[in-house]
Design a protein around this nucleic acid. Structure first.
Lengths: 156, 156
DNA sequence: GTTAATCTTGACTAAATTACTCGGTCAACA
DNA sequence: TGTTGACCGAGTAATTTAGTCAAGATTAAC
């Protein structure tokens, strides 16, 4: 799970889309203006979001984009995975000549990064678009909602 | 909390240092060879680690680096914070002309990224260098050790 | 049909960041 | 005083990010 501004832009755009969605499609130009993101850049992001099934497009005048699923069924993790191609957090990718999975010793931090990736994915899978729109995000760091989050990842 | 290869290199190097530490200093060249990281690049990273107090240096022949604290007292989060200058995850930084904290509406995803940062920091604060060296990292995603992690962040 | 709005695609690019290299200086020890 | 290694700063190649630009395809309304 990679965390870049690209993924953040995608989430911002989808949150905007969810918030302003009234059944009719929303034009990208609208979102671009509200979120101050370049239109052409948004187009690239939405192309990926579309093939991932996160949004549906309606062409022609009055067209635009709709959410692929209900806001409460769209997880933030899926958005980021759709636009940010997964990173090789370690140099241990299979086939790498000097990677840790090869002839040399498995790199010591391999498990750490893998587990960190799990943690991030776990959290972002527990948050839906609806949660963000309705500001139901904060206040979890004090009391970690373990069961809730385990359920989120299990339901996947 | 920013996650880059820079931070990963720093963690790899410190894990190596912790693992091979026998009381005498370890030369960077040794670590560079074992971890396949460029020596000059390591020097830059260790300069930051030193001012952060994570390592101590010994100059002259037979010199090298020592851990600043015991391996079980060195948290992964501190290592990454030392080398990766903190990122502005949102465009909401104070002083930004069009940022969400300014005249325009606070950006909708602000809370989300802030909370995600907290989650990552929380996890990486719960893992020590000793944990990684002794491979005590995996197997937490299934059953999240909430209390343990809350304690880690509280102890800070 | 024509037109206009909008999505769709691909190639190209400026800026920033990363991951280094290089050349040297300083400190300690033999 | 020579060697070993930490220290320091400037420079740089490769990569990624965050876009721009230019064309086309699709549909709705006129």
């Amino acid at each position: 799970m990679r965390l870049s501004t690209k993924g953040r832009y995608a989430v911002m755009a989808l949150v905007d889309l969810a918030k302003h969605s009234r059944g009719e499609p929303i034009a990208l130009a609208e979102i671009a203006e509200r979120q101050e993101i370049s239109l052409s850049y948004l187009e690239q992001l939405f192309a990926k979001l579309r093939v991932a099934g996160l949004v549906k497009s309606v062409r022609g005048p009055g067209g635009g984009y709709l959410l692929g699923h209900a806001a409460q069924d769209t997880r933030i993790a899926d958005i980021i995975l759709a636009v940010d191609e997964p990173i090789r957090a370690t140099r241990c990718s299979p086939g790498a000549p000097t990677g840790c999975s090869g002839s040399k010793s498995r790199c010591l931090t391999h498990d750490l990064w893998e587990e960190l990736g799990n943690q991030i994915h776990l959290y972002l899978s527990s948050v839906s678009l609806a949660d963000v729109v309705e500001q139901r995000v904060l206040g979890r760091s004090g009391a970690l909602h373990c069961e809730q989050r385990a359920a989120a990842i299990a339901a996947q």
